[in-house]
Design a protein around this nucleic acid. Structure first.
Lengths: 192, 192
DNA sequence: CAACTCATGTAATGAGTTACATGATTGT
DNA sequence: ACAATCATGTAACTCATTACATGAGTTG
């Protein structure tokens, strides 16, 4: 029987985490909370129903464990079907999703803004990106020190994590350069 | 009376286009269609109701014109309140929205993939970005030739458009570099 | 004893996509 | 004649966020 596919991207995000280790819904929510999960986020309100669907499709199973509160704690694990669905999905071309970026949208109406608050906006954004970049670079340094040559093996989870981290670093650097370029343009125009 | 604010980002996207020139709902939909509108998209099914809301908030008005089909064509124009709301919004800090990126999510599970299809995926993505980059660069060249020094005046719509274009170029270049870096890593591992 | 973390669940709301619906004009 | 473009409107659906709801264990 062919493995059922989850259809939703969130389902694959969850499978991707469960492929590394079994986790509870709470732990999944913690990992999918900004900014820990590079480039995918979700709240527990979405995660729990999705897990129930994945269980229904036999892509994950769970073991009930003793836990606090009125509900039993469930530790979810990926099944063989789930792993097959996940590894088939990984190399399929990603569905194009629209790019929505509020800062760029604001930039498109920048000609209506006063110079001082416009500069303040881009300085604040530049600082945000500089901070995020610094944090990512620190993570990179510690990953490289800790894992060394394992980061060069494409079949290791550490390689995959490193690849996403490099994307984050590259993204933040691009954003920072762009913001600084805008700032320079605005300053130059103000000087005249 | 203080200007009502549209609350939705789409409302500001529409106001931003109407601040340049009056447009019909159809024209707005054409401009907000991928990939013409840099970094914001919408369909007419969302645009028409939003326009009605903006009319209700007195941020835009419309003139009915003769048009084909069962409905009268409406040409929308921004009001003084609309322009005020827009220029106030421009320099407010953007609300943080989650970054969702399916390719990066796939990359996080790349360790489960076979080398050949993984390479094919990133080569295809690299090509997509190279094409988009080439197209943006062509647009940039024609903009620079056509507008010249006006691109340096922050109070001109051309400057604002140029700024968003530069962001697009920077983004595609970042993506392309990252994809190529992943490809090189995968090729290197395969050679051994 | 108050606040925080752990832990799951549902419901309401909002944002976005796709599909359904109508119909005139223009170009092939 | 047929297809494409112009032109608006609504409804159904999916995805994501926020809020409501419960309650034990740990820390200060």
């Amino acid at each position: 029987m062919a493995p059922t596919n989850p259809a939703t991207t969130l389902g694959y995000a969850i499978l991707g985490l469960l492929a590394r280790q079994p986790l509870s819904g709470y732990d999944l929510a913690a990992r999918l909370k900004t900014p820990v999960g590079y480039y995918w986020t979700a709240h527990h309100g979405q995660i729990h129903p999705e897990l129930q669907r994945l269980v229904g499709d036999r892509l994950v199973t769970y073991n009930t464990a003793a836990g606090p509160g009125p509900y039993a704690k469930k530790v979810y694990a990926i099944t063989r079907d789930g792993r097959a669905a996940l590894s088939a999905w990984v190399t399929e071309p990603p569905r194009p999703r629209p790019n929505r970026d509020e800062l760029v949208l604001k930039a498109a109406s920048l000609w209506l803004a006063d110079p001082a608050p416009a500069l303040a906006l881009f300085r604040a954004e530049a600082e945000r990106h500089a901070e995020q970049l610094a944090q990512y670079e620190a993570t990179r340094a510690s990953m490289e020190a800790r894992y060394g040559e394992r980061l060069e093996r494409p079949d290791s989870p550490e390689f995959a994590e490193y690849v996403t981290l490099r994307c984050g670093i590259s993204y933040e650097a691009h954003r920072l350069r762009w913001c600084r370029w805008v700032i320079a343009r605005l300053e130059q125009a103000e000087a005249q």
